[in-house]
């Protein structure tokens, strides 16, 4: 699926890489990824040959107008779906070659997901939500209980472990979701608009938590977001448009003046 646009895209990307200061191993590599959705006779090309690399410990934001293929890219590099063509290597494993069980394994062990609407299991307490992720990974129950308490402590919810999601505030639910995403010590955290449902203050707290985790545990964070505070913390920003990466900004190249947006502190 080599076409003109894809090659130019490759070019810009390859130019961008050598300029990085911190050189760490590549954890996600997408090569010429295309994704088509077929609905009847209509074929929608959501991704049209994306090539990119994400290194371990990076904090990446993905931006783009709606319908640009942002979510599709997100799903594809998150092993939620397989690409129509091209290769997606997550930790040197080609996702396109995997069957369902192997995909489940990758999702379980290597990636943590955080969703805009938290997606906690309503019937379970905070701790059980975190534990479930570990149980799917095959951790025995007692061990999972101990570890989930440790992680909840880390996200600042030690006192509220026995509460059901509906008894927690939005920010607290999102903390539980982060704790759940961290349950199996993933190398990658995928965040889908995680501050969109939160007020400014709580959103800031969650972003700070995420940045702390990124710094202290070296976990790679990939966010799809429109939140400028998030962009402010990012190492790189991918700008998606029409199924292609149009631009990649380094943080230092982007001028974000938070003062003018009117944060209260």
């Amino acid at each position: 699926m080599q076409n003109a646009e894809a090659t130019t895209q490759n070019g810009t990307e390859q130019e961008a890489t050598p300029r990085r200061r911190r050189i760490s191993p590549v954890i996600i590599r997408a090569v010429n990824v295309t994704k088509e959705y077929r609905k009847g006779d209509v074929v929608t090309r959501a991704l049209r040959g994306i090539t990119c690399e994400v290194r371990r410990g990076e904090f990446i934001s993905i931006m783009g107008p709606s319908g640009s293929g942002k979510t599709t890219l997100f799903n594809t590099i998150g092993a939620l779906s397989t690409p129509t063509a091209g290769r997606v290597l997550i930790d040197e494993v080609d996702v396109a070659q995997l069957n369902n069980d192997e995909l489940a394994y990758v999702r379980c062990k290597k990636i943590g997901y955080i969703f805009q609407s938290y997606n906690l299991v309503q019937a379970m307490t905070a701790q059980e939500n975190v534990m479930t992720a570990m149980l799917f990974a095959g951790v025995i129950a007692d061990e999972a209980r101990k570890r989930s308490m440790r992680i909840l402590d880390r996200v600042g919810l030690k006192e509220r472990w026995f509460h059901l999601p509906k008894e927690l505030s939005g920010g607290q639910q999102q903390r539980v979701a982060i704790a759940r995403a961290l349950a199996n010590e993933p190398k990658i955290l995928l965040c889908d608009e995680l501050t969109a449902n939160l007020d400014l203050h709580t959103g800031q707290e969650i972003i700070n938590l995420l940045v702390e985790l990124n710094k202290e545990q070296g976990v790679t964070v990939i966010c799809s977001t429109h939140d400028y505070r998030m962009l402010d913390k990012s190492d790189r920003i991918f700008w998606i448009r029409d199924g292609l990466i149009e631009k990649v900004w380094e943080r230092k190249d982007v001028k974000i003046n938070l003062g003018t947006i009117g944060i209260p502190h």
């Binding site: 939620l80 369902n100 069980d101 489940a104 394994y105 999702r107 379980c108 062990k109 997901y113 969703f115 609407s117 997606n119 299991v121 309503q122 479930t132 992720a133 799917f136 990974a137 759940r180 349950a183 199996n184």
Partner: peptide, 16 residues
């Protein structure tokens, strides 16, 4: 659907 899909994201297999 959301709960099921989330469980899958957490690594639950189809069979599970």
């Amino acid at each position: 659907f959301k709960e099921i899909a989330t469980m899958k994201c957490l690594g639950a297999r189809n069979g599970t």
